[in-house]
């Protein structure tokens, strides 16, 4: 436990000293602020529903930028060898990196909380929908982050890691379109794997346990795969 906290702390620190992280955060806040302004002006939306949908797409672009460096950089510089020969489990290294990225995402989303405050000052927010929207965004973001972390473990080149991560996220994002072309017996399965279908309910204020379980499963599988990749040096 103490190992995990130490690892998470070190990773958090490296997020907050990285200029890329601040650029990413600024990019996210500026664009989502723009979406918020237009949504409020044109749709009189009090649930932030459209803002959450827009954020889910923004995160698609942003998460690979957050995660690409996580393992690839340590592989390149060789510091991974120090981590993996310290009395730490490979799982603690991976989980620590994931948790720190999740905290970073949480901080970024927390800053957008002022949208809700603005609605509260000038109108009547739909708190239920807003809270479930944030929950959904965190869950979706967690799934994205875990996939990005996985692709970062595959290579020591950050750019390749980022591109792979983006490609993988796009795949999950677009997969429900494929469902329209498969026969009816497959469309259910394919649709289930898509990221967006699970997300829509959250933005409408509906928290469905099945959707939460879906995202958490994606996280679990990605993190396990990442641990496997780190262990693969033991098979070669």
């Amino acid at each position: 436990m103490s190992n995990l906290l130490t690892m998470t702390g070190k990773e958090l620190r490296s997020h907050f000293v990285s200029p890329i992280a601040y650029a990413v955060m600024a990019f996210f806040l500026v664009l989502s602020g723009f979406f918020f302004a237009t949504a409020v002006l044109f749709s009189q939306d009090s649930s932030l529903r459209y803002v959450f949908s827009d954020m889910s797409i923004l995160l698609l672009l942003i998460v690979p930028l957050i995660t690409m460096r996580l393992v690839a950089e340590e592989k390149k510089s060789g510091t991974i060898e120090l981590l993996l020969t310290a009395p730490l489990r490979d799982g603690e290294v991976v989980l620590g990196k994931f948790l720190a990225a999740l905290v970073f995402l949480g901080v970024m989303l927390a800053v957008t909380g002022y949208y809700a405050l603005l609605i509260w000052i000038f109108g009547k927010p739909d708190w239920g929908a807003i809270i479930s929207g944030y929950l959904g965004t965190m869950l979706l973001g967690a799934a994205y982050l875990s996939l990005g972390l996985f692709t970062s473990s595959l290579t020591q080149n950050q750019i390749i890691a980022g591109a792979l991560g983006f490609a993988l996220l796009m795949l999950f994002f677009l997969i429900s379109w494929v469902a329209d072309f498969t026969g009816p017996q497959f469309s259910g399965v394919v649709r289930y794997l898509g990221f967006t279908d699970h997300f829509d309910d959250f933005t409408k204020g509906v928290i469905d346990l099945k959707d939460a379980v879906f995202y958490i499963s994606v996280v679990a599988v990605s993190l396990l795969l990442t641990v496997r990749v780190l262990e693969s040096r033991r098979w070669k």
């Binding site: 060789g78 510091t79 120090l82």
Partner: peptide
């Protein structure tokens, strides 16, 4: 390790 990897930041 060889070439002394460190966290430079």
């Amino acid at each position: 390790p060889e070439s002394t990897p460190l966290y430079t930041d």
